[in-house]
Amino acid sequence: DESNKPILLPNESQSFERSVQLLDQIPSYDTHKIAVLYVGEGQSNSELAILSNEHGSYRYTEFLTGLGRLIELKDCQPDKVYLGGLDVCGEDGQFTYCWHDDIMQAVFHIATLMPTKDVDKHRCDKKRHLGNDFVSIVYNDSGEDFKLGTIKGQFNFVHVIVTPLDYECNLVSLQCRKDMEGLVDTSVAKIVSDRNLPFVARQMALHANMASQVHHSRSNPTDIYPSKWIARLRHIKRLRQRICEEAAYSNPSLPLVHPPSHSKAPAQTPAEPTPGYEVGQRKRLISSVEDFTE
């Protein structure tokens, strides 16, 4: 099969070098950035008060330690540790928490760990991170309901609301924008112990962030949302095809390698009803078989 044979790379090609550099910018793992907010007593309706908090309760602090690993920003190499735009020179604080497994990295933009500057009256330095995160974990210690939209931002799609209760338990629920209701189930609340709260809140936030990324990708319907490693695979396959075309153009005697095509017509299947918005969006999480067989 010609399409699977190794090909020689061009010795000097600026377009090839640019493509390789672009490939280096696509990590081999999925990345997520999640905002974390603490809401104190009497702050449920005040964005400024929430963003001005420099610490929270003892249970909130224990919750943070379970979310991930504490890292010092100045020691991080952005090409190895995903920071979601946090500055490593102290502009966004000294520490944050991050978490990773074999296929993804997540960083938490924690408002109480970011510096509260006197010259920044409206807390814009914090909002440029927190307001651009799709998902926020809100530790609501106010005793009042927290409403979506209290923290203004164009991309605040989903809130994971943590409400501490007695007996070391917590109520965990989801809020989302109306255009996200087909992807996020907000109907079920959970009672979770303090011990298990970081794991549950983190998983709910990661799932909500993946759904938000799919939702946000609708602005470019021709580019369905893939995982990062599938995006790398697609980029490599496009690069291979372009090299083959350039080689055939410079030397017409060489065969032009095309991806294999299936001449056999697909079997006719009964027509199915058109899937609704929710089903269609969830299918976009699934990769096409052509990603692996071309």
Rank of each mutant, 00 (worst) to 15 (best):
P259N: 13
I50M: 03
Y139G: 00
L67W: 00
Y38E: 01
A208Q: 01
V107N: 06
Q154G: 15
P270K: 07
K74A: 09
D24Y: 02
Q154V: 13
E144I: 03
N53G: 02
G131S: 15
V158D: 00
Y97W: 04
G90A: 08
G84D: 14
E47L: 02
I71P: 09
E91D: 09
E47Q: 03
P252T: 09
F199D: 02
R218K: 10
G182E: 06
G85P: 14
P27N: 06
G182C: 10
K147F: 06
G143L: 03
E168S: 07
S13T: 09
M204C: 05
G40A: 12
D133Y: 07
Q21D: 10
H100V: 15
P266Q: 14
W99D: 05
N196M: 04
Y277P: 14
E181P: 09
T31S: 05
A201Y: 00
G66F: 01
Q241F: 05
A49N: 04
V39T: 01
R282D: 14
H262L: 09
Q94G: 10
S52V: 01
D102H: 08
C89V: 07
S250E: 13
R123A: 14
D24E: 07
L64M: 07
Y58H: 06
S250M: 12
Q14I: 10
G153E: 05
E54K: 05
R128I: 09
A211N: 02
C98T: 13
E278L: 06
Q268W: 09
T163E: 10
P27S: 05
D125M: 14
D166C: 03
G40E: 01
S187Y: 03
H235L: 12
F95A: 05
I7D: 11
D75Y: 14
I224S: 10
I224C: 09
P273E: 13
C124L: 15
I286N: 14
T269S: 10
D145A: 06
I286T: 14
K5H: 13
M180Y: 02
T150M: 04
R218V: 08
I191D: 01
L48Q: 13
R232G: 13
T274P: 12
Y29T: 05
L148T: 15
N45T: 10
Q268F: 08
I191R: 02
Q14G: 08
E246N: 09
H122C: 14
T269I: 10
S263W: 10
I151V: 13
Y225F: 08
L171W: 03
V36S: 00
D179N: 09
Y58F: 09
I230D: 13
E168G: 09
K117L: 13
P226Q: 07
D185T: 03
K80N: 08
L9F: 11
G85L: 04
G280V: 08
D194T: 01
R242E: 14
H109G: 02
D30R: 04
T61L: 08
F95Y: 10
F63Y: 00
K237F: 08
P78C: 09
P270G: 11
E2P: 05
D133H: 07
F16Y: 10
F108P: 01
E245F: 09
G182P: 13
K121F: 09
R238W: 11
I243F: 12
V36E: 00
S57W: 01
P226L: 06
Q43D: 02
R218A: 12
D24L: 03
F292A: 15
E294I: 04
G84P: 13
V188Q: 07
I71A: 07
L233M: 11
H159W: 15
L285V: 14
F108T: 01
